[in-house]
């Protein structure tokens, strides 16, 4: 599995530490923020694949706002919300705004790892599609150049051939000078 850079946003230090331990063990790179403000700073400066954020946090920036900031910065960042059972409605609302998923507390790690696996698979698919496109574009432009040069050369040769044919079949001109003119066209 590809390793992801994951930003964990939660005001509860116990949850932060727990997530850090479990995710690091899975070889992910983990960044921590204890509130929306810290999260915003990190999102602005660091490339991130996934954000795991608590929905309800003290201050003006809650999970929904973290989601909006992230999507504004880069549509590709996937956001998973962590919610108390009572706020499922808000979480569903967040899905409409582009959240990848939501998980209810208490966290079920098997479920979390499954979601991350899916995201990581999708990211690697996207990357190989992008690589293929790059490769195709390069192939298309180099092949194009070669073919277009050949096309022009073939066109010029055809023109010469037509002219030679016209000269050689012109029986108002004496044979020897037809041949010299034809040779002249060929070696011009």
């Amino acid at each position: 599995m590809n390793t992801l850079t994951i930003l964990v946003v939660d005001d509860d230090p116990v949850i932060r530490r727990l997530l850090e331990q479990r995710l690091t063990k899975e070889n992910h790179t983990v960044l921590l923020a204890e509130d929306g403000y810290k999260a915003e700073k990190i999102i602005e400066t660091t490339p991130i694949d996934v954000i795991l954020t608590d929905l309800m946090m003290p201050g003006e920036i809650g999970g929904i706002e973290v989601l909006e900031i992230a999507k504004n910065k880069n549509q590709q960042i996937e956001v998973i919300l962590i919610t108390a059972h009572s706020s499922v409605d808000t979480a569903v609302e967040a899905m409409k705004k582009g959240a990848a998923d939501y998980l209810e507390k208490p966290l079920n790690f098997t479920e979390l790892f499954l979601r991350l696996q899916k995201i990581s698979n999708m990211l690697s698919l996207l990357r190989s599609a992008e690589d293929l496109r790059q490769a195709m574009d390069v192939t298309e432009s180099t092949a194009g150049e070669t073919i277009q040069n050949l096309e022009i050369t073939a066109g010029e040769l055809q023109e010469k051939l037509d002219a030679v044919e016209a000269i050689l079949s012109n029986d108002t001109i004496e044979a020897y000078s037809r041949i010299t003119s034809a040779l002249n066209i060929i070696y011009k």
């Binding site: 298309e140 432009s141 092949a143 194009g144 073919i147 277009q148 050949l150 096309e151 022009i152 073939a154 066109g155 055809q158």
Partner: peptide, 17 residues
């Protein structure tokens, strides 16, 4: 298309650069 050619396909057209 940039990788296509009309050589041997359509003598009605001449390529120009």
């Amino acid at each position: 298309g940039s990788t296509e050619s009309l050589t041997g396909i359509c003598p009605l057209f001449v390529p120009k650069r």
